[in-house]
Design a protein around this nucleic acid. Structure first.
Lengths: 164, 164
DNA sequence: TATATAATACATTTAATATGCACCTTATAA
DNA sequence: TTATAAGGTGCATATTAAATGTATTATATA
């Protein structure tokens, strides 16, 4: 009996896996929108402010803000005194659609790298596609407003948003 | 106007994202099971055979076979003339359960790296958890047998499985 | 007893994401 | 009108996880 057996250790597999996750980018995007939804009307946020609040790299926030701006979800303004704010109400922002926007790849299998031999007769892709759709449909039942409900006060306090 | 604007190129964002995918490991695991389901009864496959058939690294197949063996899905046998075969019928092997087995992480957000500040008041985790469940429920409607239906002959030919 | 096979361990490579840094563009307030 | 603060863009680097590579061990059978 080996030492490992004697110690009843689980065998190593080199790498095990992590996946089926949204990227942090998407997570950060949603958190940014939560922050914006809590801002008093008229107030703008800055990239720096979001970056510090959530301890996210400036660069990531930069990209997120730029993308949300291009998508028409927030209004961005350059220059001194600039910043950005929600262009739509939280009720209008569907979580499913936001995830589709922020997440680059929602395809669940690749089939192409390297090209899978059984592709012509493989039903897996269809079945996994359906499952992904079910995932998104589930998210589409919610809007940004649902993420805030009953929690606005707590969130405003945690995020230290000044309401004067 | 810059050259890039003039050429109407999309701006670079450093990295964009890919995710929400199952690992190849899981994909390979399912393909291995498809192969085994098509074998004539009494025949065994070997790691080498699967590895060559699908052009997957031996090591990956090795891990998959080991895991499936430990899970009681296949019977593995060492030594000369050894190999492995399905211990259950394709009808008994649920795709949703197989994905849960093969995929390590099905959690959709982390919340912990670094620890998210709004965690105590955040509903995102719950909503994403529901969506993941919807994904799995969709997969649970299928078994390995469904992946073969109407395609067995085509697959046997593509995979060059000898039925003598 | 030689050989073929799975089991285990660990090292290396690859690929994707996240972050860092520099600079450009734009708007405003002093 | 100019300094400054903001977002926009591009590219380089670091980090991380997955995939693969290489040995070696254990086991069964011809």
């Amino acid at each position: 009996m080996s030492v490992k057996q004697a110690l009843n250790l689980t065998p190593s597999f080199g790498s095990l896996k992590k996946h089926m996750q949204l990227t942090r980018y998407t997570d950060y995007g949603l958190r940014t929108l939560i922050y914006l939804a809590l801002l008093p009307s008229g107030r703008r946020a800055s990239i720096d402010e979001i970056s510090k609040t959530y301890d996210i790299s400036r660069n990531n926030v930069n990209k997120i803000v730029h993308q949300l701006g291009k998508a028409g979800i927030i209004e961005t303004k350059r220059g001194k005194g600039g910043g950005f704010y929600l262009k739509k109400t939280p009720q209008e922002l569907n979580i499913g659609e936001l995830v589709v926007l922020l997440e680059n790849t929602l395809q669940v299998v690749e089939c192409t790298t390297p090209k899978c031999r059984i592709l012509p007769a493989c039903k897996l892709k269809v079945i996994l596609g359906q499952a992904t759709q079910a995932f998104l449909d589930s998210l589409k039942a919610y809007t940004l407003a649902d993420l805030l409900e009953d929690e606005s006060k707590a969130l405003i306090q945690i995020l230290n948003i000044q309401c004067d």
